[in-house]
Computed example of a mutant assay.
Amino acid sequence: MTRQASRILLLGGTGDALKLARGLDARHVYSLAGLARVPQDLACTVRVGGFGGSEGLVRYIADEGIGLVVDATHPYAARISANAAAASRMAYIPYWALRRAPWAPQVGDDWRFVDDWAELVAALAPFERPLFTLGREPLAHLHEIPSHQYWTIRCLDAHEGNERARVIDARGPFTQEGERRLFDACAIDVVLSKNSGGAATEAKLEVARERSLPIIMLQRPPLPDADRAFDDPAALAHALQTLS
């Protein structure tokens, strides 16, 4: 490995990032923000927690001899990505990123795009039995559920619901058959989703399509440019291996 890429810092928290981490040896670092489950079977170092913004990340890069930052965080982790790009520029090292291709509606799909929570709530108003697949954000709004709605919220962490909400802690990949059972059990009439892309959670879109259900889709935030951007995890994994 060259001096420039003597040590890799992989910013993760997604399934794709974990697969990349499994290809790294003990020289390298896999960093998690702290919300994901910490893997116990990796050869590389696993670091949990924030860096203190871009300036803290610059210090970490210098202290740990990092020569390449690889951003494989969630497409909606915009602040982390912005800090990683800025820190890499300040440290004069490359910034690579996995930019997973977004999903796209097919002919006949009823996708309703929104930019923030306020727009999402307005779009949700006509429905009664939504399925939220937005991560943790709906948990902060359990006290705001309208009287005509019952929410089903699926996220990674266990959380108590209430009389108007059920919270399901589950991690993909999800199958179409499993999603059909969930939609039936909860009488889902609309799906709320981030446009995360990838196959692991795409089954909900297929089932919504089968049933002609609308999808309220939260638009992706803008992400910083990368020195090298990959839309295929396998291609990124290969590129990392060529550095060895």
Rank of each mutant, 00 (worst) to 15 (best):
residue 205 L to G: 04
residue 175 T to E: 00
residue 147 S to I: 07
residue 210 E to L: 11
residue 216 I to W: 14
residue 140 A to Q: 09
residue 179 E to C: 06
residue 150 Y to A: 13
residue 204 K to Y: 09
residue 179 E to M: 13
residue 212 S to F: 12
residue 155 C to M: 01
residue 145 I to Y: 10
residue 183 F to N: 04
residue 187 A to Y: 06
residue 167 V to E: 05
residue 142 L to P: 11
residue 184 D to H: 13
residue 152 T to K: 08
residue 190 V to R: 08
residue 151 W to V: 10
residue 194 K to L: 03
residue 187 A to P: 01
residue 182 L to G: 01
residue 139 L to F: 02
residue 145 I to C: 10
residue 180 R to N: 03
residue 187 A to T: 09
residue 209 R to M: 08
residue 197 G to A: 06
residue 144 E to A: 15
residue 168 I to T: 01
residue 191 V to H: 10
residue 144 E to G: 08
residue 153 I to E: 01
residue 206 E to M: 12
residue 163 E to F: 01
residue 153 I to G: 04
residue 147 S to E: 15
residue 186 C to W: 14
residue 150 Y to G: 04
residue 207 V to S: 08
residue 177 E to P: 01
residue 210 E to G: 04
residue 194 K to Q: 11
residue 186 C to I: 00
residue 192 L to V: 13
residue 179 E to A: 05
residue 203 A to P: 06
residue 164 R to S: 11
residue 166 R to A: 15
residue 173 P to F: 13
residue 147 S to P: 07
residue 148 H to P: 02
residue 143 H to Y: 00
residue 193 S to F: 09
residue 139 L to V: 02
residue 163 E to I: 01
residue 203 A to R: 09
residue 185 A to T: 05
residue 208 A to Y: 08
residue 209 R to K: 13
residue 183 F to I: 09
residue 184 D to K: 12
residue 166 R to F: 14
residue 142 L to R: 12
residue 215 I to D: 07
residue 207 V to G: 06
residue 211 R to I: 09
residue 173 P to M: 12
residue 214 P to G: 04
residue 197 G to Y: 05
residue 176 Q to V: 15
residue 153 I to R: 02
residue 163 E to Y: 04
residue 206 E to S: 14
residue 196 S to D: 12
residue 167 V to D: 07
residue 191 V to W: 11
residue 215 I to T: 15
residue 153 I to M: 03
residue 147 S to Q: 14
residue 181 R to L: 14
residue 169 D to Y: 09
residue 217 M to F: 12
residue 180 R to G: 05
residue 197 G to M: 04
residue 157 D to M: 13
residue 208 A to F: 07
residue 209 R to W: 07
residue 168 I to V: 13
residue 210 E to W: 08
residue 204 K to F: 07
residue 160 E to L: 10
residue 161 G to C: 12
residue 210 E to A: 10
residue 217 M to W: 13
residue 210 E to K: 04
residue 192 L to F: 10
residue 201 T to F: 09
residue 210 E to F: 08
residue 204 K to A: 03
residue 183 F to P: 00
residue 195 N to W: 13
residue 200 A to D: 14
residue 160 E to V: 11
residue 145 I to R: 11
residue 179 E to W: 02
residue 212 S to C: 15
residue 177 E to R: 10
residue 180 R to I: 04
residue 191 V to C: 12
residue 195 N to K: 12
residue 214 P to Y: 00
residue 188 I to E: 04
residue 192 L to Y: 10
residue 160 E to W: 00
residue 173 P to H: 07
residue 165 A to F: 06
residue 180 R to T: 01
residue 161 G to Q: 10
residue 200 A to I: 04
residue 165 A to G: 09
residue 182 L to R: 08
residue 157 D to N: 15
residue 168 I to Y: 04
residue 192 L to I: 15
residue 196 S to N: 11
residue 205 L to S: 09
residue 184 D to A: 15
residue 197 G to V: 07
residue 153 I to Q: 02
residue 216 I to D: 07
residue 205 L to P: 03
residue 181 R to M: 13
residue 213 L to C: 06
residue 211 R to N: 05
residue 212 S to R: 14
residue 149 Q to L: 05
residue 139 L to H: 02
residue 150 Y to K: 10
residue 153 I to N: 03
residue 197 G to Q: 07
residue 201 T to L: 14
residue 200 A to C: 05
residue 216 I to Y: 13
residue 162 N to H: 10
residue 140 A to W: 00
residue 145 I to E: 13
residue 173 P to W: 09
residue 201 T to P: 03
residue 216 I to N: 06
residue 148 H to G: 06
residue 163 E to T: 11
residue 207 V to W: 07
residue 200 A to R: 03
residue 191 V to E: 00
residue 154 R to P: 06
